[in-house]
Measured scan of single mutants.
Amino acid sequence: QTVVIGDTTYHLNNPEAAQQIAKELAKKYGLKVVISGNTIKLK
């Protein structure tokens, strides 16, 4: 699972954790979560 935040890319072996982290950050910073395949992007 790949999480992309701005110009930073994180690789996590746990998809659920990756999605949870993405949701928390999106909520905290008012970002939009875009999931395509096994890549999660925060914009």
Rank of each mutant, 00 (worst) to 15 (best):
A26N: 03
L25K: 00
A26V: 04
L25A: 00
E24F: 15
V34F: 12
N38Q: 05
S36Y: 10
T2R: 10
L12W: 11
G37N: 06
P15C: 14
T8Q: 09
T2K: 12
G30S: 04
N38R: 05
A17C: 14
K27V: 07
K28Q: 05
I40W: 04
Y10K: 02
G6E: 04
N14G: 08
G37D: 05
S36C: 14
K27E: 11
I35A: 04
Y10N: 01
K32G: 05
K28I: 08
Y10D: 01
K27T: 08
V4S: 07
G37A: 04
Q1S: 13
T8Y: 14
V3Q: 02
T9K: 08
G6Q: 05
T2S: 08
T39E: 07
T9Y: 09
P15G: 07
A26Y: 11
D7G: 13
G30I: 03
S36A: 08
G30H: 07
A26E: 06
N14D: 11
N38M: 07
K43R: 11
A18N: 01
I5R: 03
H11T: 08
E16A: 10
L31G: 02
L42M: 04
K28V: 05
V34W: 09
A22Y: 06
L42R: 01
V34D: 05
G30L: 06
N13Y: 08
A18T: 04
S36N: 11
N14L: 10
V3H: 02
G37T: 02
H11D: 06
I21L: 15
Q19A: 09
V33F: 08
A17T: 12
K41D: 03
G6V: 05
K43H: 10
K27S: 08
T39G: 04
E24S: 13
H11S: 06
D7M: 14
V34G: 01
N14E: 05
T2V: 11
Q19F: 15
E16R: 11
Y29H: 04
L12K: 02
A18V: 09
G37V: 04
A26C: 14
G37H: 04
K28D: 01
Q19H: 11
Y10S: 01
Q1N: 11
Q19P: 02
K32Y: 11
I35L: 06
I21K: 08
T2G: 04
A17N: 06
I35V: 09
K41A: 09
G37I: 05
A18C: 11
Y10C: 15
Y10P: 00
A22M: 10
L12P: 01
K27I: 09
I40V: 05
L25E: 00
L31V: 07
T39N: 04
Y29F: 09
K43W: 14
V4H: 07
Q1G: 10
N14A: 06
E16P: 02
N13H: 10
K28R: 12
N13G: 09
K41G: 03
K32A: 10
I35R: 05
P15H: 09
I5G: 02
I5F: 10
S36W: 09
L31P: 01
Q1R: 12
I40K: 00
D7P: 08
V33W: 07
K28Y: 13
E24T: 12
A22P: 00
Q1I: 15
A17P: 01
G30W: 08
G6C: 14
K28T: 04
Y29Q: 01
A26K: 05
N14C: 12
I40S: 00
E24N: 11
T39P: 00
G30Y: 06
I21Q: 02
A18D: 01
N38L: 07
T9M: 08
V4I: 12
K28L: 10
L42D: 00
